[in-house]
Amino acid sequence: MQDVFSRVLDAIDIETYLICESEDECKEIIYGILNKMGLKDVSIVFIEHNGPGARVRARGYIHKPGDTYGWLEINRRADGQ
């Protein structure tokens, strides 16, 4: 699984609509989803609750600027270094 994530340039965004009572509940649910996906460094980029639920864009960072980039490691391995 790590290898798959290592190809992500920087982050994975999850965009969806959640049926929920409030933005707070939406946050709880979306963090649960991100957690289930194994994403650790997570943020909510955008959230708006109206009526039946919330439109949400949540983000799990895989590589932040200055990290050791997995995709570079894979590239080096592919070159036999």
Binding site: Y17, I19, N50, G51, P52, G53, R55
Partner: peptide
């Protein structure tokens, strides 16, 4: 109906 309600809300 679920889609209608969210469309109404937006």
């Amino acid at each position: 109906i679920a889609h209608i309600k969210l469309a109404e809300a937006w």
